[in-house]
Design a protein around this nucleic acid. Structure first.
Lengths: 340, 340
DNA sequence: ACAGCAACCCAAAGCGCTTTGAAAATCTTC
DNA sequence: GAAGATTTTCAAAGCGCTTTGGGTTGCTGT
């Protein structure tokens, strides 16, 4: 059943039916309800393909996920972000186009999306320092929103958490507990967020004149085994840390395993703080948080990012939107005074 | 730049240009390359919206993810599956439409997709026993592929792993090692896969006349804390298990934590086998598998599912395709003879 | 030199919707 | 009750592509 047939069955023109269905004011209330009823009766839904062509809007937002062949460990994070964004898209009538491309082809992918008009805007995740995507998208004139930001910051829309401040606060917390040999297990520092977190850590240490130890600072894709292996070798080596700062709960789980193997009790013999993205399947709450953590829901971020992006699409020419979220520190059972 | 303009600039008709670009034989090789060159020069890409309308094909495949508000812990699994499928879609020129809807609205979502023609087919994941989606999609005439299957099996296309056989084999392995009190930490049994796994476990036990103990069989969303809490209470309770069989690596990590806390060494004091979906961020290989595991890549499954679904879309009316993957058991360091 | 046949190219008709510009119907106002 | 204003409806022109059903052109063979 298409619009024309529906119109014929109602003895109305397609124009009127279209307007009735889309809520235009030029149609009498009585007619509108008659049309609505008929549409529902025959289960009519306007053909999305035709509608998109006619309106020139794709009603679709693109997420381009670069595949590095190895480090898509980010994917539990992507997944939660996607869910948060997807809920908002659905609510606002937008579709979500997910595109997985080899990292080397992301530029081509964006150009393609822009040229063939299959999306109205795109979401950019996990920016690297000096991420080329930002310049590209600006040039292409495709609305976009960055989750995170790049070094210089600037004239584009983004939403980010205060990574530096969060890690500075977390480090201060450990320092206040008397810890001095603090290890940082960070994400890959090519990502801007990891870079900021390290700077937060270093700033806190420097402010107290505590030296940072190079062998206690590592950064890599955030996996459980990274946490386990790094913590193991640090704990077995000279000058073992008395506290760990980790960029994700997954890393912290690995650290915990290494500590447990060595008979170290969390919160007594060893302290751990991590950043918790509140991933839905990695609940850090069992009657109070297990790990002391800086905490910020990645899913909520996804939702808010979607809202902003849709707004950007609906109101082109509006100035860039920038939103910085502060992050709370939740004290759990994994931290305690230093006794090393 | 659109087709018409491009044609004018070449002094050709839109027809010819379209054919040249799409590889039809009615155009001279020389003309074709002239067109191709011009298209590349001006960075022309056919408008996807117009093309979809003209061809009647959406060149898009839908994944509908039901949100239960709580148990989207499945999402690390969804994510890897999506990546596998997405790679194939990209290769074959299909877009991936991801739709997150509250569980109660999945039926409406499918009807909508079918009626407005925004997808050519859909992927169904994590079927429940007697999953209503299968009947619905059949009725709607929308091509679909199920990853997993439902109780009765039957006249639709699916790809699944041999869950029952895998868990039977894993259980046999533990029984051969002398274990008798074996605990099963399963996923939610409303999902078909979990149901089959339990039957595999029970069949193996029954074949050796070893009783299954109700208090050692639990099933819930597959999280680390589920593994930890269940294992903790089992180990502290009467008749503690000497071995665990877990439906996912994440659960196994939780079990390991509970064991470590109690000073039990994996592979000596306690044995653990799990099913490993080879999630990219949960590597179970650090010079040989850490956990003994039945192993099957969910990402590879995603890729193969995508291939089959595309095939189904391209050749309607073809009989249903059914593919059952056998699963290997990889012996790691987490199992050993029973000495309980 | 002419039919017969490829090879090559084109005009025009959709695909199913939205939207413009105008007509028809209804309501005001004096 | 007629002119003007307003509401309601419609015909037709796109949106940018694909595809059908011819035409042209140039090449065979006789």
């Amino acid at each position: 059943m298409n619009l024309k047939e529906l119109a014929e069955s109602l003895n109305l023109s397609p124009t009127t039916v279209s307007r009735a269905l889309n809520g235009y004011p030029e149609v009498r209330e009585e007619t509108r309800s008659r049309v609505m009823a008929a549409a529902k009766a025959v289960n009519y839904a306007p053909n999305a393909r035709a509608r998109r062509l006619a309106t020139g809007r794709a009603m679709t937002i693109g997420h381009v996920i670069p595949l590095t062949g190895r480090a898509e460990m980010v994917n539990p994070i992507f997944a939660d972000f996607l869910i948060g964004a997807g809920e908002v898209y659905a609510r606002e009538g937008y579709d979500l186009l997910l595109s997985m491309v080899p990292e080397t082809e992301t530029e081509a992918a964006f150009r393609q999306l822009a040229a063939n008009g299959s999306v109205d805007g795109v979401m950019v995740q996990a920016p690297q320092e000096n991420d080329p995507r930002i310049g590209l998208l600006t040039e292409l004139g495709l609305p976009f929103l960055v989750h995170g930001r790049t070094g210089d910051a600037m004239d584009y829309s983004w939403l980010d958490i205060a990574n530096m401040r969060a890690f500075r606060r977390a480090t201060d917390f450990l320092l206040d507990l008397g810890h001095r040999r603090i290890a940082l297990l960070n994400g890959q520092e090519s990502f801007d967020f990891a870079h900021r977190r390290r700077r937060g850590f270093e700033a806190a240490m420097a402010a107290r004149h505590v030296p940072t130890l190079p062998h206690l600072m590592v950064s890599e894709a955030m996996t459980e085994s990274f946490g386990y292996l790094s913590a193991s070798s640090m704990l077995d080596g000279p000058e073992p840390p008395t506290a760990f700062l980790a960029s994700s709960v997954i890393i912290a789980i690995g650290i915990r395993r290494a500590a447990a193997e060595r008979g170290l009790r969390m919160g007594r013999d060893i302290s751990i703080i991590c950043h918790d993205d509140e991933l839905s399947y990695l609940n850090n709450d069992i009657g109070g948080p297990a790990f002391t953590a800086t905490r910020s829901s990645i899913r909520a971020a996804g939702g808010r990012c979607a809202e902003i992006l849709i707004d950007l699409i609906r109101h082109p020419g509006r100035p860039a939107v920038q939103e910085l979220w502060d992050v709370g520190l939740m004290v759990g059972q994994s931290t305690g005074p230093c006794n090393g």
